[in-house]
């Protein structure tokens, strides 16, 4: 399986990372190197083997569905690059 420029462009877009056209060939090459390395996994017989979901077998704890925190919008917003009137601010979204 080899990644072409179009796939590299699509993946970059899905990851929301701007990649210029001139950087795409190098990116596709790197993907191919890494995916080539990963291809080794195809040698393993995984028939009947469950995919791991939790490395240490444990039941997730339950807790009462109660409000235990909140009421500190200022602290939540304190690190925002742009916050106004108690909200995160982003560029205008026009669909």
């Amino acid at each position: 399986m080899s990644i072409d420029l179009e796939t590299a462009r699509r993946v970059a877009h899905l990851a929301r990372i701007a990649v210029s056209d001139e950087d795409l060939p190098a990116l596709a090459d790197e993907f191919n190197t890494i995916l080539g390395f990963i291809e080794q996994l195809n040698e393993v017989d995984v028939d009947g083997v469950e995919p791991m979901t939790s490395v240490t077998p444990m039941r997730l704890k339950r807790r009462p569905d109660e409000i235990t925190a909140g009421g500190y919008a200022e602290r939540i917003l304190s690190n925002a690059p742009d916050a106004r009137e108690g909200f995160f601010a982003v560029p205008k979204v026009v669909e």
């Binding site: 796939t7 993946v11 899905l14 990116l27 996994l41 195809n42 393993v44 995919p51």
Partner: peptide
């Protein structure tokens, strides 16, 4: 980006699920 690719539609089983089985 590699993570995005191995989780993307059509490759999830071939890469991600296989890796979790391994």
């Amino acid at each position: 980006m590699v993570g995005t690719y191995v989780l993307s539609a059509g490759f999830y089983d071939a890469y991600y699920n296989r890796a979790r089985r391994v």
